[in-house]
Design a protein around this nucleic acid. Structure first.
Lengths: 220, 220
DNA sequence: CGCTATATACTTGGTACCGAGTATTTGGTA
DNA sequence: TACCAAATACTCGGTACCAAGTATATAGCG
C-alpha cells in the first residue's frame, strides 16, 4: 500500500522518465540508461535499481505489466508507469529544475577543514587535483566532439555542458587558490603556519595507539 | 573490533579534525561546528553524528576519555582522537583534496532528463531557478562582508569562495540555457517539440492509476 | 512567580542504499 | 566442439543515514 513516503533517489526519476516512453523490465532500463549515457549524470547500480523499482511499485507510481521467463533465465517483470507516477515524475522534475538544492560536495567539506594540513603539503595535493581536472576537461572535449560527429542533437547533451562548465570553474578556483598559497597572498600562508603552530602546540600529544579498548560501556 | 570498513560520511572527517584540536563530547562537537559555520559545507544532523562517532570508536580512530554526568542531564562521553585516527584523517584529507570525486548533483540529473518537460514549461522553471541563485549570491556577498567586518582571516572561509564561484557558474549556465531555449538557438527548441510529439504520439495512453492516487503533501 | 523558549544531550526506529555475489545463456574463436 | 568471455538478469546481507522523539535545565519576560 502507498505510504506517502517519498522516494528521493534520482535513479527513481530516471526510471520513471524511461517508463514514460514505454514499458520496460529492470535490466532493460539499466541497459537503455547506459546506452544513453545517463550513468554519467545519474548514479546507477543494480542494488539501488531493484530497491527503487520496488519502492515505486509500492507507492503505485509504476505497475507490473507481465512476468515472463525466457528459457531458464531468471524471470523478468515488465513495468509501466501509472497516471499518478506520471504526475509525480513531472512534479519532481519541475521541483529540481526550479529550486536549487544545497548539496555537499566533498571538496567543499575538505576546503573548510584545510587548516589541518600544513600548507607545504597542500601545494602538491592541489597540483595533483589540477592535473586530474585538466584530464577530465580533455575527456569532456573528446566526448563533445564525438557527439558532434554522431550528429547527436544538443538537446541530449545539455548535462555535459553543465558538467564541463562546473569543472572548468573548479579548475580555475583551484589554480587561483594554489597561486595565493604559493605567493602568500594577503599573508594567507603565514597566518596558516602560525595558526597550526599555536593549535598543535597547545594540544597534548595524542595518546593511545588506537587499540580499541574492550570496555564498551552501554547505558541501560 | 576494527573491521577495516571505511567510514565515508564527511561528517566523520569533521569529527576527526575537531578532536584533533582537543577532546570533546558529541554535543560539544556539534555546537562547535555550528559556531564555525561548518554546517554550511558539511551536512550535520544528530542521528548521523552519533552513528558516525560509534563507527569511529569501533574502528579505533577515536576513544572515550571519560563519561560524566552533570546533574540529572544525560551522560556525556568525551572522546579523543587516537594515533591511527590522526593518520586516517590526514590520509582522507589528502585523498579528497588531490583526487576529484565524481558526484551527482540533482540539477545535472534533471538536465539529462529535461526533454520529458515541454520547453514552454521549462522557461518559467529556469527563470525561477535564476531568481533563487541570485538570491543565494546576495547572501554569499553579505556573509563575505560579515567575515571582513569581523576580521576573520580568509583561511577560514575558502570554502565559501568555492561555493560562490560554483553558484555563479551555475547561474551563468542557466541564463545562457534559458536564452538559447527562448531564441531557439541552433533549432534546439524546434527539435525538442518535434521529439516530444513523436515520442508521446507513439506511446499508448498511460493506463490506470495503479493505486488510488494519494495526495502528496510535499514534493521531494 | 509562573510561563514559554531555547539550550543541553542523546535515542530510536526505520528506510535507503550499495557492493559483491549468483546463475544462466550467448557469441566468438581456436 | 570445447572453452572462455561477455551479456543477461537479478539477489542478498549489511551498513549508512536521517527525521523525529525524549527528557531535563536554564534564561528571559511580564
Amino acid at each position: 500500500m502507498p505510504s506517502n513516503k517519498r522516494i528521493t533517489n534520482p535513479l527513481a526519476l530516471a526510471v520513471l522518465t524511461h517508463l514514460y516512453e514505454q514499458p520496460r523490465h529492470p535490466y532493460e532500463l539499466a541497459a537503455t540508461m547506459r546506452e544513453r549515457r545517463k550513468e554519467a549524470s545519474i548514479k546507477l547500480n543494480y542494488g539501488s535499481l531493484y530497491t527503487v523499482i520496488e519502492g515505486l511499485e509500492r507507492e503505485g507510481y509504476i505497475a507490473a505489466v507481465e512476468t515472463r521467463r525466457d528459457g531458464r533465465r531468471p524471470e523478468k517483470t515488465v513495468y509501466r508507469i501509472t497516471d499518478s507516477g506520471e504526475a509525480y515524475m513531472l512534479e519532481w522534475m519541475r521541483e529540481i529544475v526550479s529550486v536549487p538544492m544545497k548539496e555537499y560536495p566533498q571538496y567543499e567539506a575538505a576546503l573548510s577543514l584545510l587548516p589541518v594540513l600544513p600548507p607545504e603539503e597542500v601545494v602538491p595535493l592541489l597540483e595533483a587535483r589540477i592535473r586530474f581536472l585538466k584530464k577530465t576537461l580533455e575527456t569532456c572535449a573528446e566526448e563533445a566532439q564525438a557527439c558532434r560527429d554522431m550528429k547527436l542533437p544538443r538537446l541530449f547533451s545539455i548535462e555535459s555542458e553543465y558538467y564541463e562548465a562546473m569543472t572548468r570553474t573548479e579548475l580555475g578556483f583551484t589554480e587561483s587558490l594554489l597561486r595565493d598559497i604559493r605567493h602568500d597572498a594577503g599573508g594567507l600562508t603565514r597566518l596558516w603556519k602560525q595558526m597550526r603552530a599555536q593549535v598543535l602546540g597547545s594540544r597534548k600529544p595524542a595518546g593511545g595507539s588506537g587499540k580499541p579498548s574492550s570496555k564498551r560501556k552501554k547505558s541501560p
